[in-house]
């Protein structure tokens, strides 16, 4: 009886130790997004009529599908918005993003920095979208969005008032139904 109780305590202790250890390592390795990056995320969904936006807590690391941005001629990409490759300002930043996107790593989203309609989830599921770390290059911010229903590169631009706003969505090619 006593042995069994000791064994249980030891097991619980081990689990607690491992959990705390993992948390410690995790918090040391996985960095938080910066405040400005959270502002970008808020701006991406500000036009959405969804009452609740479910977002995965960790940002997307680089994944091979993201390569469509690099392998497709810009004129052949499906772009909704006003991103024009002939706009020298956008072209410069876009090319710079293409060079650094392979370094995308996983970072943590701080739910307190997001608007109230966001629900940050720690478990990915069908109704949860994932986003890559917003990469801010001058006036533009580039971030991939991935959900069960679609994949795209979203581009936000800082307006004259200093607020982030929609610039364009560049869509991963899929069949529409």
């Amino acid at each position: 009886m006593v042995r069994s109780a000791i064994k249980t305590y030891l097991n619980l202790g081990l689990i607690l130790f491992l959990f705390l250890g993992f948390q410690n390592v995790y918090s040391q390795k996985v960095k938080l997004l910066k405040k400005e990056q959270h502002l970008v995320i808020n701006s991406i969904f500000k036009y959405s009529s969804e009452k609740q936006i479910k977002l995965y807590k960790k940002t997307l690391e680089y994944e091979s599908w993201m390569g469509f941005i690099k392998t497709t001629n810009f004129e052949d990409l499906e772009v909704i918005g006003n991103c024009l490759i002939k706009d020298s300002e956008f072209e410069k930043e876009f090319n710079e993003f293409k060079n650094v996107m392979v370094n995308l790593g996983s970072k943590k989203i701080n739910s307190k920095e997001l608007d109230s309609k966001f629900k940050v989830k720690i478990i990915p599921s069908k109704n949860v979208s994932a986003i890559s770390e917003p990469i801010i290059i001058n006036e533009y911010s580039f971030q991939f969005i991935k959900s069960f229903y679609g994949r795209a590169l979203n581009v936000q631009k800082k307006n004259d008032q200093g607020n982030w706003d929609y610039a364009c969505g560049i869509y991963f090619p899929i069949d529409l139904q």
Partner: peptide, 9 residues
């Protein structure tokens, strides 16, 4: 497009 970021359908 901006109402449905990431979901073209």
């Amino acid at each position: 497009g901006r109402k449905y970021p990431g979901i073209i359908n």
